Simulated scan of single mutants.
Amino acid sequence: MIDKQSPLPIYYQIEEDIKQRIADDDYRSGDMIPSERELSETYDVSRMTVRQAVTNMVNEGVLFREKGRGTFVADQKIEQPLQGMTSFTEDMRSRGMEASSRLLQFERVAAPFDVLRKLQLHEEAEVYKIERIRYADQRPMAIETTFIPAAMFPGLDERVVQGSLYDYIEKSKQKRIGKASQMIEATIADEQQSSLLEVPAASAILHIERNSSLTDGTPFEVVKSSYRADRYKFISDIYRA
């Protein structure tokens, strides 16, 4: 509950209490929270104070309003640390979520120039182009396009790419994944992305490009992904030099 003697603003304490209730599953995704009148009685504060707390949480994406219906708990964003290198499947598994994919494209193609350069391939080299929708608990999270050298993984097939490529590379091919560089930028979903990710037209999305190499320094992967910004957020610990 709230402490009216605390130096912390009352609206902030209300926000923290509701967020804790969400974390404790008292309020679950899609649940309607009590009305402003009910919350003002519960916390024994003015409706204006409650409205400020609720509006702040709507702006944060913790809650959402539906006109004429009420205020509801939004799907909570998945936190992805920027430290450490994991596959999508490993990442979802660690959160107790079921990862799955829908394959949109799998073919062997001439490497685009930027991919050729990043994978350090010769001009005639071919790559596997793998385009997938990545799901967490059956809900679309990202559109992912992966390029890997065809000569490095000659046995790759559609069955393999339905699962975790990293598992295949490390367990089946006995290659050790070393490190990656990653670029993240905000952009707007086009018509196709909106449809595949099941978000409104012109929604904000996170465009992420990852260039990965094995422990011996050999580049093996370029991944270009479009993540739902309403379901994903990236966190990082930083230190003063």
Rank of each mutant, 00 (worst) to 15 (best):
D237H: 09
N59C: 03
E209W: 00
Y135Q: 05
I133L: 08
E191P: 03
Q5F: 10
R132A: 08
E158N: 11
K67A: 09
K118E: 14
A125E: 15
E16K: 02
V223I: 08
E131F: 07
Q174F: 12
M141V: 05
D26P: 02
S94E: 10
F147D: 02
F153Y: 13
E144N: 10
N56S: 04
R95C: 04
Y11C: 04
D91N: 01
A99R: 06
I133H: 05
L156V: 06
G61L: 12
A23Y: 00
Y128C: 08
T89N: 09
E107Q: 05
S195H: 15
G68P: 00
V45S: 11
P140C: 03
Q76E: 05
I130N: 04
D137Y: 07
A23F: 03
A142Y: 03
K4N: 08
M48S: 13
E90R: 05
R93Y: 13
P112C: 10
D24G: 04
R132P: 02
I14V: 14
Y135D: 02
E15V: 02
E123V: 14
S29T: 14
E123H: 13
Y168G: 00
F113K: 15
M48C: 04
E198W: 09
D75I: 09
A229P: 02
V160T: 15
Y232I: 15
A241I: 07
P112L: 10
D137A: 08
V109W: 05
M152C: 05
